[in-house]
Design a binder for these strands. Structure first.
Length: 89
DNA sequence: AAGTAAGAAATTT
DNA sequence: AAATTTCTTACTT
């Protein structure tokens, strides 16, 4: 299972990593930061295969509606992390 | 290389 | 809420 991190993934990780603790961003927001507005889905894909799990706070990325959407580790995990950061509380 | 399948979204009606 | 659209990666041929 070797996958080479592409430029797209790299940008996604960088953008998500920039998210300050206690705040959430939307997939569209990240997609726009990397210059691929509209690729929100692709962003989710990159996070799903994120080889930088502890580096990339994918749990800080939520949908535009404020819903958690999906999560590789489970939505419960995301909810807990966000609650701890006070992002949704 | 080309085509197909799937993925955690967003937008529009 | 349902249907449609859009982007990228991975697998298969």
């Amino acid at each position: 299972m070797k996958r080479a991190p592409t430029a797209f993934e790299r940008k996604v990780y960088a953008a998500v990593r920039r998210i300050p603790r206690g705040q959430t961003r939307t997939y569209a927001w990240v997609a726009r930061q990397i210059g691929k507005a509209g690729a929100a889905r692709a962003v989710g894909n990159a996070l799903n295969r994120n080889p930088y799990a502890p580096q990339v706070p994918c749990h800080r990325v939520v949908r535009s509606d404020g819903s958690l959407g999906g999560f590789a580790q489970g939505p419960a995990r995301k909810r807990m992390l966000l609650r701890r950061e006070g992002a949704i509380c």
